Computed example of a mutant assay.
Amino acid sequence: MKIMNNNKKDNIMKYKKVLVVAATVGVFFSAGLGIKSMAEGFWNGHSHVQAINNDIDTLSDRIHAKTDIINQLNADLSIARTNVQDNTAQLSKLTGRLIQVNQEKTLITNNNNALNNQLKGKDNELQAKEQEIQAKIQEIQDKIQEGNNKVAAKQNELNSANQTIETLKAQVLDLQTKLSISDAALNDVKQAHQKADQVVQETATSEQTPQISNSSQNQAWEAKVYEAQARVSYNGKNYLAKWYASTQDIPGNGGPWEEYQEIN
């Protein structure tokens, strides 16, 4: 629309130029007394053309404004159509969902009716079970009474046994007193034995010296299994396996490996 309006303006300007040129030629080629009247007529026509141009410009501006309004209305209409389509689609989905919910409601109602029928049947079974339970309760109460009578009899036997136990406790207490005297003497012997063992151990530790060997065939230690009496070198030192050594047993960390010195 803007391009068409610009073309109209260009045509109008060209028309104006043609009129001006035509008027100028008429002025130069006119003669006699008619020159003045022709000039006045020319200027009067020019005024009319100027007014027409002004009206055309005003109309063009109005057309532009109307065009902008129409474009905005078209855009709003497009948005409204899109919203209507979206609402229609959403309404269709909701309608489908409503149908599904009604179907589920019908199914739930049917299931509920079936459950109510089952519940009635279970109530009848429950009443029968309650009667059976009451009979069992009465039977159990009779058994309890019978058991209480037996318990009373056993209690009498227990009282007699308790008297016997009290007599035995007195005898045990007497024996414990005698045993305490023996335990005190035994503890003295144990303490003397522990002191002797400690002295022997300290003496053996102070006199212990590394083993010495003249073997020069030791291989570098590897993380593998070694049999007893195996000899290896590790970190510049020689070690002897006192017993079986696993891959986790590292020389120098204690365990089966014992350091020794080579004799050259």
Rank of each mutant, 00 (worst) to 15 (best):
N110H: 08
D76G: 01
I79C: 02
L119A: 14
V84I: 12
T67A: 03
K120H: 05
L77W: 07
T106V: 10
K122D: 08
R97Y: 07
G121W: 04
T67W: 01
I79L: 11
N117T: 15
N71H: 04
A65C: 00
N113R: 10
L94T: 04
K66N: 04
L94C: 05
V101F: 06
L77C: 06
S78V: 07
T106D: 15
N83M: 13
E104W: 04
V84M: 14
D76K: 04
T82H: 14
D76R: 02
A114I: 13
N111I: 09
L73R: 04
K122S: 10
S78P: 01
D68N: 07
Q85H: 13
I79N: 12
Q90R: 12
V84C: 06
N112E: 10
N102P: 00
I108W: 03
R81A: 09
N71R: 05
V101Q: 08
K105C: 08
N112M: 13
A89E: 15
T109Y: 10
N74K: 03
S78N: 11
D123A: 12
I108K: 09
L107V: 07
G96Q: 09
L94K: 03
R81I: 10
H64E: 12
I69Q: 02
K93R: 15
A114P: 00
N74A: 04
H64M: 06
N83T: 08
Q72I: 01
I69Y: 01
G121L: 13
K105Y: 09
N102I: 09
Q103C: 00
K105W: 01
N71D: 07
S92T: 07
N113F: 10
D68A: 05
L115S: 06
K120L: 13
Q90S: 12
I99G: 07
T82S: 15
E104L: 11
Q90N: 11
I108M: 11
I63W: 03
Q85E: 15
N117D: 12
L73A: 09
V101G: 00
D123F: 07
A65L: 07
L91M: 09
N113V: 14
V101S: 06
L98E: 02
K105M: 15
N124C: 00
N112I: 12
D68Q: 05
L94Q: 08
L115T: 10
R97Q: 13
G96T: 09
Q85R: 13
V101W: 01
Q72W: 01
N71Q: 06
E104N: 13
Q90I: 09
N116D: 11
K105V: 03
L115C: 04
N112L: 15
V101L: 14
Q72Y: 01
N117K: 15
K93W: 00
H64L: 06
L94M: 08
D123E: 13
Q118V: 11
A89I: 06
